[in-house]
Design a protein around this nucleic acid. Structure first.
Length: 564
RNA sequence: GCACCCGUGGCUCAGCUGGAUAGAGCAUCUGAUUGCGGUUCAGAAGGUCACAGGUUCGAAUCCUGUCGGGUGUACCA
């Protein structure tokens, strides 16, 4: 359920009752438990504007707020803070909604169509760690939007049209063999071709000729090119499947698919006067930047920016997207700023189309340097994933007697979950320090802590057997706070939605799990001397917590286990 | 050179549309607890929020400057 928007509405109405109308009203979480559940600080700002006494406004408002049953306490504090405590009955009555399959979360009133552009591997090479963040963050954002009711179109904008393909074709022609054998290790093949390219001028020239032939639609080139893409996508799919990421062939919308429209894009930009010629190239200039966005080279070739503009046109005009999220490395901020500005200026996107660069920082190793293998090479994503599973297996192996199959399954859920959680739990905009030990730790804000909490609650529920799902009795403060936390899921998802920030969800879940542990420590559930009614009440709280954790992790693409 | 991002306890990070004594986790120290899965819980210690100004009743948060780190900067994607 959405609590904050209800409170905002009540505050607005109460303002009306005292003949005041602030521009906007936003309650925030109480900064301390002693202050209650929420606080409203707007009285001070309003008083400044109206040149009156903040304490007076706050008091008048508080008197109105007091009339609402939703609050058990409304207090004016300090210069004009209003501290709000919710009525335990209100929380108890609503708590059972958290037991349903959506953990009590509704859908947005006005869902929109959203394109989430993520992962975007390069077809000439294997996926490496550089693709991890885009893939994980993008998938989570798509899941979140979808969960809240938006119509989400996941797009994998694969790089399948660069000069590197001429190089691959040329190398293949030189070493004619069975294509499957050659491509079984795409990485090696690419490296070998690149080596030839760098060493031999003749080979390089030939490569460029092949690019032209390919783009001109030469049949044998196209056939080879198709085979490369096919093979490469298979590699990608393997990664997506092991990560549990919801991408497959149906989400592929390749760079090359915009090819036919590139000349139009340039022509339209020229006609509308948005683009100009400069030094033989077609460019768009900006007041706040010394460098233009180039959409066509001197030699007539099109660029990355041209494709991106064509993609925006397609997504807005053909797909009808209202919001487009590009989950791409922060280093491309400048590029996207220019592309977005151009798209709006040219009318490819509408004035109100949300074009967002969901930027993320680099992945660094423990010592703060770019994440590489020991010999300085790029780490293949599939290797990283496998290592995560192997390490997870080490962590759990010591405890119990699992069959090999069970162990593998559990290790997979934990390993992949940890890999994702570690990435998602920090603000995506900052660089991410990758640390195996921290990632797979049982302590702190980690996947394993969450999964463990879930398994533990499950164990209690299993032991309890059937019970009546009553409205809980929120006797002590911890029970009340836990209920409130459970019911705050939707507020947190909404916030994560607006800002496209997955770490808001992980922070919330961690607070929830911590609070549950405290509740559980102080409030016995299954002990003999617990009255039946209290037992049921606490079981409902436990079940609601488990369901909330499961739902939240589910949005992050992380599985839970009934037993660990 | 110019532009953008970042600088919060030993470490990893929250908080940033200005609000009350700057929050977590790890590591450190102390305590509880043979426990409904202690892979737990409670507590302590640890900060001039890079620095200097400014705006404000109020600044980690906004503005300016300085220093330090990163990134991007005309025909790659």
């Amino acid at each position: 359920m959405q609590i904050k928007s209800q409170l905002n509405k009540i505050i607005k109405d109460s303002f009306k009752a005292i003949d005041t109308t602030p521009k906007s009203v936003t309650v925030s979480d109480a900064t301390k438990p002693e202050f209650g559940d929420y606080q409203y600080n707007g009285a001070m700002a309003l008083a400044k504007e109206l040149k009156t006494n903040p304490r007076e406004i706050a008091t008048a408002l508080a008197n109105e707020l007091q009339k609402h049953e939703i609050f058990s306490k409304v207090e004016v504090a300090g210069p004009g803070f209003i501290n709000l405590t919710l009525n335990a009955d209100f929380l108890a009555k609503n708590l059972p909604t958290a037991l349903n399959e959506r953990a009590g979360v509704g859908t947005r009133e006005e869902p929109i169509k959203v394109v989430v552009d993520y992962s975007s591997p390069n077809m000439a090479k294997q996926m490496h760690v550089g693709h991890l963040r885009s893939t994980i963050i993008g998938d989570t954002i798509a899941n979140l939007f979808e969960f809240l009711g938006d119509e989400v179109i996941r797009q994998n904008h694969i790089g399948d049209w660069g000069t590197q393909f001429g190089m691959l074709i040329a190398y293949f022609e030189e070493n004619q063999k069975d294509i499957d054998a050659k491509l079984s290790d795409l990485e090696e093949f690419y490296k070998a071709a690149k080596k030839r390219f760098d060493e031999s001028e003749e080979f390089a020239t030939k490569s460029r000729e092949y690019v032209v032939k390919l783009q001109g639609g030469d049949e044998s080139c196209l056939r080879l090119w198709n085979a490369f893409i096919e093979k490469s996508l298979e590699h990608c799919q393997e990664v997506y499947d092991s990560l549990g990421v919801k991408l497959d062939k149906s989400n592929v919308k390749s760079e090359s698919s915009y090819n036919d429209d590139l000349a139009n894009v340039v022509a339209q930009l020229e006609e509308s006067g948005v683009a100009k010629e400069s030094q033989g190239a077609k460019c768009i200039f900006f007041e706040d930047s010394e460098n233009p966005l180039i959409i066509q080279k001197q030699d007539g070739g099109f660029l990355y920016a041209t494709t991106d503009l064509a993609a925006i046109k397609f997504r807005v005009q053909e797909l009808g997207a209202k919001r487009i999220c590009y989950v791409v490395d922060a280093r491309q901020a400048g590029h996207f700023k220019q592309v977005f500005a151009t798209a709006k200026k040219a009318g490819f996107a509408n004035e109100d189309t949300l074009l967002e660069h969901i930027a993320f920082g680099m992945m660094l190793d423990k010592s703060g340097r770019p994440f590489k293998t020991r010999d300085g090479g790029t780490v293949k994503l599939i290797d990283l994933i496998n290592e995560a599973v192997t390490r997870a297996k080490e962590v759990i192996k010591k405890n119990d007697e699992y069959s090999e199959e069970e162990l593998e399954n559990i290790a997979r859920v934990i390993g992949i979950g940890s890999l994702k959680y570690a990435d998602l739990s920090i603000n995506r905009q900052s660089n991410y320090i990758f640390d195996w030990d921290k990632m797979l730790s049982l302590d702190g804000n980690t996947a394993l802590y969450m999964q463990y909490a879930y398994a533990r609650i499950n164990s209690i529920l299993r032991k309890a057997g059937e019970f009546e799902e009553i409205e809980p009795i929120l006797g002590d403060d911890l029970e009340r706070r836990l209920a409130l936390k459970v019911l705050s899921l939707e507020d947190n998802l909404q916030k994560a939605y607006t800002e496209a920030m997955p770490h808001i969800i992980t922070s919330y879940l961690y607070e929830l799990a911590t609070l549950f542990m405290r509740f559980y420590e102080n409030n016995p559930i299954l002990k003999d001397d617990v009255p039946n009614e209290v037992k049921n009440s606490r079981l409902v709280l436990a079940k609601a917590t488990a369901n909330t954790i499961k739902t939240g992790l589910g949005i992050l693409g992380i599985d839970v286990l009934d037993r660990i």
